[in-house]
Amino acid sequence: MSASVLFDTPGPRTRRRSRIASVIVVVLIAAGLAWVVYTLAQPRDSSGITLPGYFDASRWDIFVLAELWVRIGGGLLATLQAAAVAAAMALVIGVMFAMLRTSVHAAVRIPATIVLEFFRGMPVLLMMLFILLVASTGAFWAVVLALGVYNGAIIGESLRAGLAALPRGQREAGLSLGLTRLQTKTFIEFPQAFRQMLPVIIAQLVVLLKDTSLGYIVGYNELIRTTMNNLGSSVGNRYLFSLFLVTLVIYLAVNLSLSAVARRLARRRSPGKILAKDQITPTASISALGAPTGNPEDRTTE
């Protein structure tokens, strides 16, 4: 905190003022939250009938049923399954795209670029619909294929950026040792680019996991569809809010732990001496927090 260059080390008066501001903000936020919780907890009149508040036991009593949790677990499993298969596919497609896009032959490079731009510019949801209607593969493969191709295109782009950021000497050294261009690329350049871009790739895989929720719209029974649609209609609307909160908490738990892994990898990444001055991410920070820069998630596409 004190290391910020933007302002002087605060004196007693500034510290007091900042403390007061802090307290005011905390009180305001707490009051806002308390108001929301209080309003939700109030019983409400709806066309003559009094409904219990949202934290009333009658809105939460289904959560003691083991069967309910089995179904929620099934939904979560379906989400993770789709994400895992799509992630594997995205990595393979990403490497392929990066290879094709950096080819020396214009006849390979240009069509690859056009296809890549096409996939990157289109909504994943539209791609899912396309696969669903044209290939009629069923919802699971529609979700997986669309996510694999779309995220593959994005991973391919970041791998390409990683290749471009490598010092030229790496490639020249490989070629001068008598390796072919393809060998240089696969054995010398790619491993380094992959390592350099690993945090970005992992952050993109977190995005992929989040995007499996689009299965809700195309009819794949993943977590949201299971809890909100299937369970929601079998236990009734009165549990909708409770189910929503549970779904939200599950998603946050899974995504935040994955993001934490990504962040740790970003911190542990030691690109080696060769790359020290070719860091793609800025290294200086002037934020008041002195927050770590080059957060991998800054450079992903949602």
């Binding site: 905190m1 910020s4 302002f7 605060p10 900042s18 501001a21 802090s22 307290v23 903000v25 905390v26 936020i29 989040k210 995007d211 929720s213 689009l214 809700y216 719209i217 949201i224 909100m228 929503f244 779904t247 939200l248 998603y251 946050l252 995504n255 935040l256 993001s259 934020s287 008041a288 927090l289 998630e297 949602e302």
Partner: peptide
């Protein structure tokens, strides 16, 4: 997020982390 008031910092980062880790489908469903 860059302001010198700590509670504003915390609020901004909680807001960011919460929304970034929630799928858009769930936000729109809400």
């Amino acid at each position: 997020r860059i302001s010198p008031v700590p509670s504003l910092n915390v609020f901004a980062s909680v807001y960011t982390e919460l929304l970034r880790n929630t799928p858009l489908t769930l936000v729109l469903f809400f």
